[in-house]
């Protein structure tokens, strides 16, 4: 079975994270706009619903998607606008994964205790 090389995986992850982030964005604009109904409106009840742990874990996935999409986007820009970018695209993709992990670890250390209710 053909499993693809780095560039193909980079594209698939960029596409999947991009679609997920765009759909999250639409939902996020909708939920924040509920503040327009005022302090007695549905906003607080809606957010309390969102603060349950499955959605908090979803939010961690959104943050991971943001970091990957951001750094892989930089990789795409480098490939498009430099002479050497395409030559080093595979190496840069591993750099993207490394940066995503390096930024992800302190975020997880901060957020996981909040989700399990110890902070």
């Amino acid at each position: 079975m053909y499993r693809g090389r780095e560039g193909q995986w980079a594209f698939i992850l960029h596409r999947v994270s991009g679609i997920a982030l765009a759909l999250y964005l639409l939902l996020h604009v909708l939920d924040i706009s509920l503040v327009m109904y005022g302090p007695d409106g549905p906003f607080n009840a809606f957010l309390a619903f969102y603060h349950q742990w499955p959605f908090r874990i979803g939010l961690v996935a959104v943050m991971a998607g943001v970091v990957y999409h951001a750094f892989n986007g930089l990789r795409i820009i480098i490939m498009d606008f430099t002479e050497w970018g395409v030559k080093y695209q595979a190496v840069m993709w591993y750099g993207v994964l490394a940066l995503t992990t390096i930024i992800g670890i302190p975020v997880l250390v901060k957020v996981i205790p909040e989700i399990v209710g110890r902070a």
């Binding site: 603060h51 908090r56 901060k110 957020v111």
Partner: peptide
């Protein structure tokens, strides 16, 4: 990155409510 830092890292996002927004 700035948006996430302000609303998810500097605070616990579970504290976001009408008053905060």
């Amino acid at each position: 990155f700035g948006h996430i830092f302000m609303n998810n890292i500097q605070i616990n996002v579970a504290n976001v409510d009408y008053a905060y927004v």
